[in-house]
Amino acid sequence: MPEKIDSSPSYPGRRPIDVLAPAETSSPVIFASPHSGRDYPGELLRNSRLDRHALRQSEDSYVDLLFDEAPRMGSPLLRALFPRAFVDVNRSRQELDPRMFTDNVPKSSDTRSSRVIAGLGVIPRIVADGQDIYGRKLYFMDAKRRLSACYDPYHKALRGLVDEARARFGCAILIDCHSMPSAGGAPFREGEPPIDFVLGDRFGSSCSPEIVRLAEDVLTGFGYQVTRNAPYAGGYVAASYGRPRTGVHALQIEINRALYLDERRITRTEAFEVLRENMIVLMRKLTEFDAADLCVAQAAE
């Protein structure tokens, strides 16, 4: 029988999430950072074949700090404090990789999704550069504890923020904040500049085009190269929360890490503050978006 790895309680005594709330909520916009958590539990560090630095390759490093002025704009910021290598909340709860476990996963598991096959399910098997996280298999109980301790609180909080915004403003606008490796921003054609931002609206299905256009106009106004839905169209959060016909809009924003990060050392560069100031402008423009216009657009559909 394979040696059982450390099974001490996941995230004991730790807060899995943080909500930076405004003194007064004045906008239906919600900002979320699901992949910038930097609080690595001992369970993961002891059981991984990788060191902390290698595990951090999967982080959307410091994205939460790019958007932490959201409360000043009258909007909350939800951020996961646990790392993506431990639990990935931008996946379905059912996206479990049976190759990772000594015992069977539930029959309801989505074991054939493209993300699971790639090793990037809700409990990731690999880090971003393709290295295996574990040298031996987990027991499913390990995954179950992690989901209860981290995944469920994140989505409970996110659903609560969305419901509150809809009740107060008649709609909710979720901005799902991510970063991408600079390699992911490689130009599609030789001679073109690298991609700085990718706006993902699931090819128009998760978000009002007016919101996407506003974000695109602000970013291109700064001189950034912006694409829509390529190479990232939006993940589980955009797909499952974005329901424009019910008044819930979800837009995924991917930021090229070369704009603010030394990717090898995983440290912020001097350009971080410039980008942060630009994100403050973007947040201000998004939170000033006229929700009444959005409701008119929905009624016309």
Rank of each mutant, 00 (worst) to 15 (best):
R99A: 15
L259W: 09
A128H: 13
Q252T: 12
H178F: 08
I255G: 00
A21G: 00
P71T: 10
D18G: 03
D60T: 10
F101L: 02
V248W: 01
R265L: 12
N104I: 03
C207T: 09
D152S: 05
F86N: 03
Q225L: 09
F188W: 11
D51N: 15
H155E: 04
L81W: 05
S208T: 12
A23D: 13
D132R: 13
D110G: 01
K156A: 14
E273Q: 13
Y62N: 04
A143P: 08
R284G: 11
A250H: 04
V122G: 00
E273A: 14
R257C: 07
R243D: 12
T102H: 01
L282W: 03
K156M: 10
Q298D: 04
L294P: 07
L44H: 03
L174H: 02
F197D: 02
P231I: 12
G121Y: 05
R276Y: 08
P231L: 08
M73D: 07
R14C: 09
S8G: 08
L161G: 06
G184L: 08
V226C: 05
V198Y: 07
G130Q: 10
L294T: 09
D142Y: 02
E210L: 15
G119A: 04
L50H: 11
P28K: 08
E190P: 01
H178V: 10
E190F: 10
V212N: 00
R228I: 12
Q131L: 15
K156V: 11
I5Q: 02
Y62K: 06
I5V: 14
E288Q: 15
